[in-house]
Amino acid sequence: MHFVPPGQEWIKVFKNRDNHVADAYWFPRPCMQCDNSPCAKVCPVGATFKREDGIVLVDQERCIGCRYCIAACPYGSRSFNWVEPPHTPQELAAKYSVELNYPHRKGVVEKCIFCPTLAREGKLPACAQACTMNAIYFGDQVEDVVTNHAGVSVSFTQLIREKGGFSFMEDLGTEPRVWYLPPRDRVYAAPKG
């Protein structure tokens, strides 16, 4: 979808374990699109910026490659193109746009951008579309509706309130836009380890 260069994981799935009593669980980490984004704060040239719709984007035509945003991001959500990424003809055929982040180029920072081009078409982001377990919901918090790949739409506030939703490392004051529901009433066995 994004022609993500090898070595980058825009959505990285960790195997988390909160303590030695609790079971492990899978923990996908996209970019948190923080409202108080530490990356946008430190970018010296405004290449990383927060859009009004809440998405944090990177302008690869302006990025100077200092990697200060990688230092600032506590989630490790950002990657740097250390070498010229391998290209495909389809990727190169696209006209570069901050909403695509490709064609990819070396010497700049990239990250998950919540697929703004798909959002324009009214579609779910690539990760939510690809999630076979329908575990990823996406939506607009102002409209208070989130939807998963199965087409189930639910109230965001109700979901978070009833299922004890939380966001990752919110004590750092980053105000993340990604929320998690703790594992309850497991249908499948917890991952080992």
């Binding site: 040239v45 302006r62 990025c63 100077i64 490659g65 200092c66 700049v108």
Partner: peptide, 10 residues
């Protein structure tokens, strides 16, 4: 820097 030629962006 990844893009030293963009220094003047600063």
């Amino acid at each position: 820097m990844g893009h030293p030629e963009r220094l003047l962006n600063l």
